[in-house]
């Protein structure tokens, strides 16, 4: 049928924060997608900046590869501050 393309919406809720994914919507063109994002996702002062991107243009990893992508980080505990043994009386570190 004639569904308009789907767009993903990212909102920065206030200056200093990242844009965060808030949902999606349908719009026929970029200008409409931006306006709709404002009308749909910023009715209660939720945002100061909007990004939109066509859903089909998002590149995502296949969840089947998750293990290869994310599990190797699990055994690199030396990247975390708690890995290092230091005396309790050492302050401000």
């Amino acid at each position: 049928m004639n569904d308009w393309p789907l767009w993903e919406v990212f909102i920065r809720s206030k200056a200093g924060l990242h844009h965060r994914h808030v949902g999606s919507l349908h719009a026929s063109d970029e200008a409409m997608a931006l306006e709709n994002a404002r009308d749909v996702y910023c009715r209660r002062m939720e945002g100061v900046s909007i990004w939109i991107v066509k859903s089909e243009e998002i590149v995502a990893n296949n969840p089947e590869n998750s293990e290869a992508l994310f599990d190797p980080a699990e055994n690199k505990i030396y990247r975390h501050p708690t890995f290092y043994d230091l005396p309790d009386n050492l302050k401000h570190m």
Binding site: S24, V40, R43
Partner: peptide, 26 residues
């Protein structure tokens, strides 16, 4: 008016959630 409009918004959030399951809004 704001309330009924919110309901349109809720419908939209939910249709969007549903679309992630591979079914179109149409």
């Amino acid at each position: 008016l704001a309330k009924v409009q919110d309901e349109a918004g809720h419908g939209l959030y939910l249709y969007s959630a549903c679309e992630t399951l591979g079914v179109s809004r149409d």
